[in-house]
Design a binder for these strands. Structure first.
Lengths: 216, 216
DNA sequence: GAATTTTCTAGACAGTTGTCAAGAAAATAC
DNA sequence: GTATTTTCTTGACAACTGTCTAGAAAATTC
């Protein structure tokens, strides 16, 4: 009896927790859509609520305050933001194919998810001014670096050559290139996608193939 | 008489214009200091005025509205933001020296002007969400690319080798590296400066020295 | 189906924002 | 030295912000 009750209660409680967490996720999703559209500076709680099916009051039922909501957003954002190239890495039979597929995937997400990517850079930049997201942002950045590292290491493997750079620097270079192409893309320059497609394989070669030490 | 009067008037008018422009510059400077400290999202007109020696009303005497002020800020920001390496380029006698001096200068400004640099990235990002600054931001970005190009081209010259990359891509890579190191630096990672100092020459080599085509 | 709990709405609050206007203060003109 | 123009301050305004509360609506429990 007591046992049964307790089990029931636990089940209910878990279901409630799940529903609670589900709604939090749903609201965080609305918040992310708003952020991607307006940017961090212009996103308000009421605007977020209008992008959901609820009124602005709910936000304070599911989140303690704005920082709580935004922190949750950043955490939830990771899945969407860290583009996974694992499949490409696993499938590629040779270095050239890997390079082509990787470049194509980056160019694809540049086109398809431009809003999301600009939000990422916006949030990462916010973390330079505000402490609150910094830890989560750095964690996401680490994951992104990890993904790039996977590709680079596998590419080097397929060429049977060592990676000639620290993974952090390799990531910084690919990220810099991607960010610049995002800038082009959102400024209306149609060459962005093509440039990215062309330059990513070139960059891969440059990261792996070492310069000849005899020449300098 | 009429002539003299007119000349006087012109002189006065020009002086007034100068004073007017001077005060605008002064206020824009206060605005930039505020922006560098708080970031775009948290900078208000009253906060800017408090960082100046005037009250908040003046801002609307010298600027039509907030966008006018911020646009002026971005334009004025260029001088501060585009770090010049011309002297280093002119002075360097060989490639190694150029690489070392360039890396040192970048590391120096990373340490000394971190706030200014994070503001630059903040403003550049804002331009992804808002039309108003975009043109000016792109212009500054072009100048920055130009500066990097100077260094890279000169470096290649000193080695008597061609630059193996488009200048845009080279800029994107150096900027990506710098931005990542800024992220580290502002997150309290002391290795940022040293890493930048070490990796910039390595990157220079990689940009100039071409991979051997026989190997892939 | 009544009682209770969970979920959500609507509105109020205090503070902040960009903007503007009336007039004080200062500089300049005559 | 007075008149006029330029410069700056002060306070007000409407709109918006994050936050909180009272209570309606819905779901759940027994």
């Amino acid at each position: 009896m007591t046992e049964a009750k307790q089990r029931t209660r636990e089940r209910i409680s878990r279901r409630q927790v799940d529903k609670f967490a589900e709604r939090r996720a749903q609201l965080a999703d609305s918040a992310l859509r708003t952020l991607a559209e307006l940017g961090y500076a212009r996103t308000s709680l009421r605007e977020i609520a209008q992008n959901s099916e609820f009124s602005h009051g709910v936000l304070h039922y599911y989140f303690a305050d704005k920082v709580d909501l935004l922190t949750h957003c950043v955490r939830q954002f990771e899945e969407a933001c860290v583009t996974r190239y694992d499949e490409i890495v696993a499938r590629a039979n040779d270095a050239d194919e890997l390079a082509r597929e990787f470049a194509g995937a980056m160019a694809g997400t540049l086109d398809a998810d431009a809003q999301m990517h600009r939000l990422w850079y916006d949030l990462r930049n916010q973390s330079l001014f505000e402490e609150s997201f910094r830890a989560d942002v750095l964690e996401i950045d680490r994951r992104r670096e990890e993904m790039i590292t996977h590709v680079v290491v596998r590419y080097a493997e397929l060429l049977d050559r060592p990676v000639g750079l620290s993974t952090s620097v390799a990531y910084a270079m690919f990220d810099g290139l991607f960010q610049q192409m995002l800038l082009w893309h959102l400024a209306g320059d149609e060459r962005a996608t093509a440039t990215l497609t062309a330059e990513v394989p070139a960059l891969l070669r440059r990261v792996v193939v070492q310069p000849q030490p005899a020449d300098y």
